[in-house]
Structures are given as structure tokens and as C-alpha cells.
Amino acid sequence: MMTDNTANLQHYASPYYDPVKAHEYYMQNRELKERRSVRKLSDEGKKVWSYTRNEIKAEKKTKVEAEQEIKKQRTDEFRSNAKAMRERISSRLKDLNEALSQRASSKKKAIDERKKSDLDEITAETEKKKQRVEAKKESEIEKLMSVPIPEGLSKAEKSKRIAERNEKIAKLRSDAKSEKDKLSDRSNSDKGDVRNTATNKKQRVTEDTKAERSSNSSNASAERQQVSNDLKTAIAAAREAYKAAKESIDQTYEEIYQREFDRIAAEMPKVSKRKKSKKKSSKKK
């Protein structure tokens, strides 16, 4: 014989309900604490609702976990992309700085080569001028020495003539030495200017390179900050998308909870026992 509850179980059909599993679940979860009152359900209805509610909850949990996984995958992807971008920025900065160093080294090498060339040119030119001074001095001395002292002069006059010639020769030598010293001083001064110019040029190269390095670092830092900002925005968007999806799931399954509960309540209501009236009791006596 089929009881009313058995009939109700046959009437109630839902993808969330399995009669055998429902009974097992109900025996393990007899205390039902939720907003929907189970007092209006029959005992069998309580079993059905307990199991059905658990199945709905499990399905909801699966969908929430799926959304969580989507959020995690997106977040991991955003972070991976950000990391790769930061690595590209660092690599590009390294390449730029290496190129700067090579360019600065080439410029300084060219400056040193030019300095050496200028110094060698000054040395060679000064040496030529000194040689001309020396040649002129020797020529003048040779001229003086080629002029004979007349014969028949007194010893005193002859000594006087020799002394005058030696004095002229000494003056030629002194003048030549003075002129060569001036040439050396001028050469040293010119060389000092060349060295100072080269030093200043190399210092400017160093300062320019340092400024460009600083500019490159600032640009890279700004790019990294933008990557960080974009990452935060993307993660926040993923979090909001998950939040919206979670709220949608909550709303959808709240409707499912209510719909299924209403169906069970309609098909398996608690049967109220009618109390016998006092009047009927009196008549029977």
C-alpha cells in the first residue's frame, strides 16, 4: 500500500533530488537551520528538502569555485604579463645604458687620440722652430768665425778683437737659448691648453652620459609604475568581476532554493491533526 508520503515522493521530481541519497543525507543532517521554515513540511518533505538543499548548495559551490578559478587564472595571467613587461623594461634599460657606456668610451677615446695628435704636432712644430733657431745661431757664429782678425795688430788689439767676437758669439748663443726657452714655454702652455680642453670634453661626456642614464632610469621607473598601476587596475577589475558573478550566482541560487522549497512545500505539506471538539466528546459519554 502506498502512503501519502510515498505518493508525494513520486510526484516530486527535480534534478537536485535522489530519494535514496536524500534519506541517507537526512539521517546525517536532521537539524535544519535556515531561513525557510521546515515546520510546514511533512517528515518526508523535510528529508526531501534537506537533501535537495544540499545538492543545490553543492552545485552552487561548484559554480562559485569555477568563478574563483577564473579570477585566479586572470590574476595569474595579469601578474605574469606584468612580470614579463617589467623584465623587458629592465632589459631595455640595460641595453640603453650599455650603449651609452660604449658611446661614451668611444667619444673619450677619440678625445684622447685627438689630444695625442695635437700634443705630437705641438712637439714637432716646436722642435722645428728650435732647429731653425739653432741653425740660425750656428750660421751667425760661422760668419763671425769666418771673418779673420787682421795680421799686424798689437797683442792687445788682437785680444780685444777676439773678446768682441766671443762676446757676439755668446750673445748669439744666449739669444738662441732665450728664444728656444720661449718656444718651450709656449709649447708647454699650448700643451696645457690641449690637455685641459681634452679633460673638459671628457668631463662633459661623463656628465652627459650620467644625465642620460638618469633620464633612462626615470623613464624605466615611470614605465614600471605604470605597469604596477595597470596590474592593480586589472586585478581590481577581476575581483569586481568575480564579485558580480558571485552576486549573480547568489541571486540565481536564492531563487532556485525558494522555487524548490515552494514545490516541496506544495507537494509535501505537514498534515495538521484536528483536535476532537468537547461537544463530540460529551455526546459520546
Rank of each mutant, 00 (worst) to 15 (best):
D262M: 04
K171Q: 15
R88M: 08
N200Y: 05
R114H: 06
T209Y: 06
P148K: 04
G192F: 00
A7E: 15
S106T: 09
I149E: 05
E167L: 12
T233D: 15
E255Y: 08
S80M: 10
R224F: 03
K107Y: 07
S277W: 09
S184V: 11
A211G: 06
A66K: 09
K136Q: 14
K171C: 09
N166A: 08
S178M: 13
T126K: 03
D43Y: 14
K72A: 09
A241K: 12
T206H: 11
R92A: 13
H11G: 15
E121F: 12
A237S: 14
N29C: 01
S139N: 15
K116W: 04
K210A: 13
I111F: 00
E24I: 08
S281I: 15
D95G: 06
A156V: 13
K202M: 05
H11E: 15
K57D: 08
Q28H: 04
L153D: 05
S91Y: 08
K129H: 08
N54C: 06
E55D: 05
T252H: 10
S218W: 08
S272T: 15
A234N: 08
K47N: 12
Q203E: 13
S184Q: 14
S146M: 12
A245P: 01
E255Q: 11
T252K: 14
K63W: 04
S221Y: 05
K46G: 02
S214M: 07
D120F: 04
L93A: 04
R161C: 07
Q28C: 02
